[in-house]
Write a protein that binds this DNA or RNA. Sequence first.
DNA 1: CATTTGACTGCGT
DNA 2: AACGCAGCCAAAT
Length: 112
Amino acid sequence: MPQHPAGRRPEPVEGFVEAVLAVVADIPSGSVATYGDVAAVLGSRGARAVGQVMARYGSDAPWWRVVRAGGRPPTGHAATARRHYDDEGTPLVAASDDDGYRIVLAACRWRP
DNA sequence: CATTTGACTGCGT
DNA sequence: AACGCAGCCAAAT
């Protein structure tokens, strides 16, 4: 058989990936969680692993609700994420860095 | 199966 | 405060 099911990207074992996406889906609009927080809910400390999942499978999830410790938006997505924050009313503060702003974790960090 | 990679984090210089 | 570095974990190659 000549080929794999047409045009379908090979899906990894759904376990960690699905778990991460499920947690992200639980973050309420207007709130956020850090990569480390998401990992912690899964009983893991793999903040980077969570980032990997978001980068690869998070395109259809509310990925902007997962931010870096320190309140900075996902690397390389500050502009796109900001539209969502503005839309959801997520509290932000102006910043001088390239992101231009920073999420106020003290006010909207999600706690499971 | 070994190595590399990355939308991370915290601590030290 | 900028920069480097080591620790961490799962997926990708």
